[in-house]
Computed example of a mutant assay.
Amino acid sequence: MGFRGKKYTNYQTITDAAGENHRLSVPKTKYWPERIEPNVTKEALDAIKEVVREALPELMPLGIAGCRNCWYIDSLDNNFVIDRVPGDEGMMVCSGGSGHGFKFLPMLGREVMKIIEEPDNKNEYGKLWQWRTKSEGPRNGLEDGEHGERVLAKQRMATKADWKFDERARL
């Protein structure tokens, strides 16, 4: 089961190949940046438990054996970014999509090829997915960066005790 109610960020200082430091949000998973057993937020765990409690109460006695975070490659407006990088026409970015790119697979490759092969003749997808800055268009809260409410370090994390179900009413 998954909780997709909030897009968390995890800012760290990353040094690029030129030796310059940048503050970027990076995934924090079971295997990266180091092998750890990650935790999830209490908010996410409570949402998952509520679904189990209401829709699958027969699973409550089994409890929760473990939890992991699923990191997305969200763009600031939840749309793909499929375009050449400004100032470097030899580099192309195909990313974003707010974690729901799989449902576009039947047509995504075809549209990416059109964008690659005809960069000056952008169709409706090419225009929607073109390079943009965080000051343009709709936003989803990720543009708040390290000062926003989505920073993982600012969240209340679940404890092992939180994984247990209480005996509230069942269906």
Rank of each mutant, 00 (worst) to 15 (best):
M60Y: 00
V112T: 06
I73P: 00
N121P: 01
L45S: 06
G66I: 01
L62E: 10
G96C: 02
A47R: 10
H100M: 10
L62F: 03
R68A: 13
E58L: 06
P86N: 07
E58K: 08
D46V: 01
D46H: 12
A65D: 13
D77V: 03
V52K: 14
G63T: 05
H100N: 12
L56D: 01
M113E: 04
D83N: 11
G90S: 15
G63V: 02
C70Y: 05
K49N: 07
E54A: 14
L45I: 05
A65M: 08
I64Y: 03
C94I: 15
I82G: 02
K103C: 10
C70A: 14
E50S: 12
D120L: 11
A65N: 07
L59D: 00
R84E: 08
D88R: 14
L76K: 05
D46L: 12
S98L: 02
F104R: 04
N121E: 15
A55S: 13
I64R: 03
F80N: 05
V81T: 07
D46R: 13
D74M: 04
R84S: 10
K49Y: 05
I73D: 13
G101F: 11
L108W: 03
I48P: 01
E111G: 00
I64C: 01
D74P: 01
D88S: 13
P106C: 09
D77W: 08
Y72G: 03
L45Y: 07
L108H: 05
E89Q: 13
R53G: 03
S98E: 04
P57V: 04
R110L: 06
L45C: 06
P86C: 03
L105W: 09
G96V: 03
N69I: 01
E58R: 07
P61G: 02
E54Y: 07
I73E: 10
V85Q: 10
G97T: 04
A65Q: 11
M113S: 14
M107S: 09
G109P: 06
N69M: 11
G101K: 11
M91Q: 07
E54M: 12
D46W: 10
L59R: 11
M107D: 03
I73C: 10
S75D: 02
E117N: 15
I64M: 04
V51C: 04
G90I: 00
R53L: 06
N121V: 15
I64T: 05
I48V: 15
P86F: 09
V52T: 10
I48T: 02
F80P: 04
C67D: 00
L105H: 07
P61Y: 09
M91A: 10
M107Y: 13
K114P: 00
F80L: 13
I64W: 02
E50C: 01
C70H: 11
F102Y: 14
G96D: 07
P86T: 05
V93D: 05
